[in-house]
Write a protein that binds this DNA or RNA. Structure first.
Lengths: 157, 157
DNA sequence: TATTGTTATACTCTATAACTATA
DNA sequence: TATAGTTATAGAGTATAACAATA
């Protein structure tokens, strides 16, 4: 048996840094933990950016996706955003209640989704804020941005 | 006014790819969206790895952090993991009910946390599975891993 | 006075099952 | 028979407010 490496606050191990609270944090060595922290920081900023529009992240994603794909099927939107049918229905209902999204039957069971004029206008304003938030983070990056996107793509597949 | 660039399913714009459902997806150009997708994929695998131990991601994080910092303050654990006081109490209660974590008063208001022998044993087994899950993703990476960690660090700060 | 821990509570997101209708 | 959409419901995770006790 080898000595266990995560049991003690080992002063000789430089791989585990210290947190702001002074705790050793083996979690910081985990790729998944780092990705999650980065994601949470970006989402927190995105939520702030969306608040003036009274849109959740899921609602904003829907408006952006439907805006880029007018007439798309509701079922395809759900698959693309990985939102389950049962959760997509009330989300779209809220957007219809605000006259941001309109639906129309494709056949007897499928619905097509389109942004209304109000939805398009809100999407335009909202998207520029979303892009600004995203760029703010992207500007922090010094290295090869293409390589980072490739790495994230490899992790997400 | 410039032409709006996200309104139509524009065949001439190669920057916006197509999803598995055939929809144009301007979201894929967003760094934050990519980071979130990567995080969700890794967390889904982590949740699977933790299921046999009946541990949530938060509970596993707590065991790993307390295991590396025996006698640490509950309040510091909450700050490090960004879990609010009010939510940390029931989480720790569950770990105490399973005899994985023990607490002891530091002074009249603070508590110190330590893994019990059972907690240490479970942490050891669990951590090896967590590391295996994390390595599985890390192996997908071709480029400079140090650069990726630096990028994630820059995004999370 | 600020901090620590606790309790109660509410809100969002997500997950499942059951149902109708249709391709 | 598989797919699309809806409804109801339950479970996490997270948020705030109020409180008691203590530094």
């Amino acid at each position: 048996m080898t000595k266990k490496s995560h049991e003690q606050p080992d002063e000789t191990a430089p791989s585990t840094g210290k947190t702001a609270s002074g705790l050793a944090s083996p979690l910081d060595t985990l790729l998944g933990y780092r990705v999650r922290r980065a994601s949470m920081a970006m989402i927190a900023d995105l939520v702030d950016a969306l608040r003036p529009f009274r849109l959740s992240v899921g609602e904003a994603s829907l408006l952006i996706l439907v805006g880029a794909n007018p007439g798309c099927r509701q079922s395809d939107v759900g698959r693309t955003l990985e939102i389950k049918r049962a959760n997509l229905t009330p989300l779209i209902s809220r957007m219809k209640a605000r006259d941001l999204v309109a639906d129309a039957p494709i056949d007897g069971r499928s619905l097509s989704l389109t942004l209304t004029p109000d939805g398009t206008a809100l999407r335009d304003e909202m998207l520029s804020r979303v892009l600004a938030s995203d760029r703010k983070f992207a500007k922090r990056l010094t290295g090869d941005q293409k390589a980072l996107f490739a790495a994230l793509e490899a992790l997400a597949r």
